[in-house]
Design a protein around this nucleic acid. Structure first.
Lengths: 154, 154
DNA sequence: TATTGTTATACTCTATAACTATA
DNA sequence: TATAGTTATAGAGTATAACAATA
């Protein structure tokens, strides 16, 4: 039971920022739920993803790839190390840097985790149909790409 | 200076979830920066926006519109009330509900705030050009709309 | 003097849940 | 018994900044 009169049609729904924020939240919740089925969560995902692409990165490199702060990477790696998914090893040429490697358990999670992520993306793109979903991906890629060219970031 | 070898091309950039998350973050930072020029911030924005659309909503209604939790709305209203932008008034027919109204100062902020938000959205859509930006808005609106039909949420 | 990584602190958003007062 | 709103507590993510060890 609500008290106020009927809302106006919401111009908020015509705002790029609002639409993207709502969608981002829904996608994040969806993926987080799926990852929890295999003992992971969304906070661990970018770091693991980067390592599945390439092991041996330093923490600074990992932070750049994940677009998170270096101190966030420190704590995420503490967690992943505690879970036995990741190892910090001394860097071969720099004694202040560390190289991050996956443990066998970390490797083993890859296919299931990637499958969940792909299923998540597909379930959302599936709502649009093949043509529109391809178009959406093209436009998002362009927009993010243009923005990162402007700032010089990844 | 980095130590590892060159990265592979990132399939992460082909993930809907990643693209939307990155874009959402950038849009949020952009709008937050603009709002701070007029003493606001992104956390206050959805609540103010909803009230600029329609005053006299109850806190529960406000929370639904903002898609935030009711206890978050409580604290946001505490802040807005402390800033003198908003008033809680007793509801005319329910003694447990409160109606939220803008103060004159709250009303006065509207045009400048809306202008900042519109400038933010336009600056991002401008990167795509008129046709593609219209197409992006159409696709995002469809995707968010389909999702909320499925869940019954706004 | 700058870089790599860790830590402390704080602020926000989120989540669960207990609590009041009303209905 | 359910609803409207507040509050406590805890967990994330983010931000600034200080710090140790290394370059």
């Amino acid at each position: 039971m609500t008290f106020s009169s009927e809302p106006n049609p919401l111009p908020r729904n015509q705002s790029l920022g609002w639409l993207v924020a709502v969608l981002a939240r829904q996608l994040a919740d969806d993926l987080d739920g799926r990852l929890k089925q295999i003992g992971l969560n969304l906070g661990l995902w970018p770091t693991l993803f980067a390592l599945w692409e390439q092991e041996g990165l330093t923490q600074t490199e990992l932070a750049e790839r994940c677009m998170t702060a270096h101190y966030t990477t420190t704590r995420t790696l503490d967690t992943l190390e505690g879970m036995g998914l990741v190892e910090r090893r001394p860097h071969p040429t720099s004694r202040r840097a560390l190289q991050i490697f996956l443990t066998p358990a970390g490797h083993d999670l890859r296919d299931r985790a990637m499958g969940h992520a792909q299923a998540c993306n597909q379930s959302w793109l599936g709502k649009l149909g093949p043509e529109d979903s391809q178009e959406l991906m093209r436009l998002l890629t362009r927009l993010v790409g243009v923005a990162s060219q402007e700032t010089g970031a990844l």
